[in-house]
Each structure stands twice: as structure tokens, then as C-alpha cells.
Amino acid sequence: MTTHENILIGSDTSASLAAILKSLQTMNQYSFITATRVSDIVQLSKSIQPALIILSFRDNQNVINSLLSYSRDFSIPMLCLRTRNQHRELQIRDNLVVFTQSFEYGMQSNNLVTNILGILKLIKKTERVSSSKTVLSKGKSSIDQNKDLTRYTLELDQKKAVLDKIKERIKQLYADVDASTKTQLMAIVNTIKMTRNDRKHWDDFKHYFENVNPEFLKKLSAKFPCLTAKDLKYCCYLKMNMSNEDIRLILGINQESVRTHKYRLKKKMVLEKHQDLRNYLQAFAS
């Protein structure tokens, strides 16, 4: 008999709860437990130890504070769904893993399912890494650093997806507006392109990555000085054991480009045909 993992869903409106459950109906491998009161969320999180808590309250911050009030070591990852009317920024403790997503965007197509599966997959990866290796750096444990890296990577992926949807919508509108408006729309598209490829994203990612994998980039660059910045990004993602689909989404390329880049990297690093690039990088500088 297969044991299903539990996902706890909390919302203070029945309409939101029903919409969330409907959007998750394809996730048959998980059991969903629902709650409408904050006190029930706290009790259920203790008793069932869910793999993930999904919150869609008018005040998600209040629920998070209540969960933390009963345990300083609370570590269950959470996904907070925010409506377009919620502008308050969440105040999150450093060692807590909290993802955020637009409620409206999540209810479109298969977006919420994709996000949840991505969170669960990345969380499991970091737990596997942390169980085999403990690294302390600047007062943070390996698991905390991996969670930071997981959270940053996924949120960057979400941001890029939203920007791409906005860009496509602008292109659809372009043909039906006057010249002045076209100029303004193109300025917005160009801004999106610059934001999507902002170097700060890479710098932030590198900061988290190097805390978890010290010396990896330094030693890799020293051994293979021909590697470009894009090559190094790709190597980092393989070091994290990201799938080809994860890498495709993060870099904004197609599957064929992922395979081509992998082939070119093997040539640059002079690896034998039988050597697996992913396995090589995961063992490198460990």
C-alpha cells in the first residue's frame, strides 16, 4: 500500500479553498488536508507533519507568526498565495523556508501544480545534500544555506515566467495601437529584457551557491579558464543536480539548447565520451 505525503492547505475563505483544491486535483500522489482557522493550521502542522503548508489567508503573516509561536525550530516549508490586493511584505525569519506566488497566477492553467512540484523536488534535493554533508559558514548550517539557494532559484524562475507572459501580452497589443503607444510598449519590453538578464540575479545566486559549495567555482575556473559566465551557471545548476527541464526554465532556453550546451561543455572540459558531465561536476571540488 502506497503512503501519500500530506500537504496542509489553509484559507479563511471557502471560495479560495475550493479553487486551490480544484487546481490540485491532478496531484493524486499527495493527500490534502484543509483548515479554515489559524488554530487548526497550528494543531495540524504538529500532528501530521506535512511536506508543505499552503496558505491563502487575508493575513498570511499572522498565520506564520502563530506557527512560529509554538516552536522556535519550526521548519516545514510554506507557500503563501497572495491576491492582487495584498501589498504587505512578509517578514520571514532567516531559517524559515517560505515561497510566495500570486493567487491569480496560480489558478491559471497548471501554474500552482508546477510550482508545488518544483518546491517539493528542490526541498528534497537540499535535504539529501544536507544529510550527507554539514558545512558551517557565517553562522548558517548547510541545510539553511541550501534552503536559501532553493528559495532564490525557484523565485527567480517564477519572476522570469511572469515577465515572459507580460512581454508576450505586450506583443499581442502592439499591432492595435498608435505609433506613440508602440514606442512606449517597446520601451517596456526592453526594460523587461534587461531585468530578465540582470547580472544582479547571477551575483545573488553565486553568493548563496558559494556558501553551500565553497571553492567550486574558483577551482572550476582555474582548471578550465575557457569557461564563460554562462558555462559556469550551467555547471552550478548541474552541481545542484537540477534536471534539464529545471535548467531550461531558469536559462530561458529550449531543450535542444540545453543538450547542445552540455555537449559543448564536455568538449571544453576535454571529458571522455563515456564520462557523464553531471556526475563529474557533482564530484568536482567536493
Rank of each mutant, 00 (worst) to 15 (best):
I7R: 02
A175G: 05
D40G: 02
V113C: 04
K121R: 15
T150Y: 03
L24I: 09
Y152C: 09
Y237D: 01
N95G: 02
H207Y: 14
Q275F: 00
Q29M: 12
L21D: 07
T114W: 07
F57P: 07
I53F: 04
Y234I: 05
H201C: 03
Y70Q: 13
K140G: 08
S180V: 10
I33P: 05
S257H: 08
H207L: 12
M240W: 11
A15R: 12
R82W: 00
R259Y: 12
L17Q: 06
C236H: 04
A222V: 06
Q145L: 14
N111H: 11
N254H: 11
M1V: 13
M27D: 06
L96T: 08
G252T: 08
K22W: 06
Q108I: 03
R196M: 13
I48K: 04
L277T: 07
S180Q: 09
R196S: 11
Y208D: 05
K268W: 05
F216Q: 06
T134C: 09
R199H: 10
S286G: 11
S39R: 07
A179W: 02
A35H: 04
R151K: 14
L55N: 06
S130E: 08
T126P: 00
M27G: 02
I250R: 07
Y237W: 15
H201T: 05
A285Y: 02
K124V: 13
V42C: 04
T183F: 09
Q184S: 09
V135I: 15
N244T: 10
C235R: 01
D12M: 08
I20K: 00
E89L: 11
Y152V: 10
I76C: 14
S142C: 10
N115M: 13
N254D: 15
R169L: 14
S221H: 03
T13P: 05
Q43S: 12
I192L: 14
K22H: 12
A175Y: 13
D12F: 05
T195W: 06
S102Q: 01
I123Y: 15
V42S: 03
S75L: 13
F32D: 11
V129L: 15
R264E: 14
L44V: 04
V270I: 13
A222M: 09
K262P: 03
D157L: 14
I170G: 01
C80D: 00
Q108G: 03
S75E: 15
I33R: 05
G106H: 00
L55K: 01
K230T: 14
L90M: 06
L120W: 13
N6W: 00
D178W: 05
L265E: 03
D94K: 12
S16A: 12
M269G: 05
R128F: 15
T34L: 05
K266N: 10
L227F: 01
L149K: 00
K160D: 00
Y208K: 02
